[in-house]
Write a protein that binds this DNA or RNA. Sequence first.
DNA 1: GGCCAGGACACCA
DNA 2: TGGTGTCATGGC
Length: 219
Amino acid sequence: MRKYLLVNIYKRLYKKFGPRGWWPGQTPFEVMVGAVLTQNTAWTNVEKAIRNLRREKVLTPARLNGIEISKLALLIRPAGYFNVKAKRLKSLVGFLFNEYKGDLRRMRRESIKTLRPKLLGVHGVGPETCDSILLYALEKPVFVIDAYTKRIFSRCGVAKENIPYEELQSVFMKELPKSVRLYNEYHALIVQFGKDLCRKDPKCGQCCIKEFCKNKKFR
DNA sequence: GGCCAGGACACCA
DNA sequence: TGGTGTCATGGC
């Protein structure tokens, strides 16, 4: 994939949708929790769960570490898969305490190279959740790939349909300048594009980035 | 009333 | 190692 293509797709998306203001979270820890809660779940449902956690004043590493898992599950119920996610949040917060004394600032000091594999080793943290945490909570320059990214960029022939996560990620990271702000905005814009214009129907002509970027200067 | 959402994991061949 | 089932709520 050519550099100018990815950069210009970004410019085009930005022009249409404007800044997305991601990630919608008040603190890095809240962003981290949101990354788990939003797994295969609409963000509106995640918001309800986060409101519950905030209302109960358990949206801190210490409080979440101390809360009973059954109570946690009840609070995050609106986000769906609540039993699964309660377990995953517990694993994640346990990891945060074991490795960084419950302090995200300590975690942030570690390099991506060593931190990413560690995070991926935590139960319930797959590649997308991991990279969302790295980028949006810890402000590390890591490009997040999600279902929309795969769908959109494979449909227009930019990538193979079943391209592995890391492979597609490296396409973006090799071709784009290493910038937290750019990665942040680009991923958010792709999600917006996917929601607005791209349907799961593979025949949908409107969904394709190529179609979207028909204008000569974006080819 | 069915489909889908900002995934990950367990299980099986 | 790749495919399939499971986890679940809420909006449209």
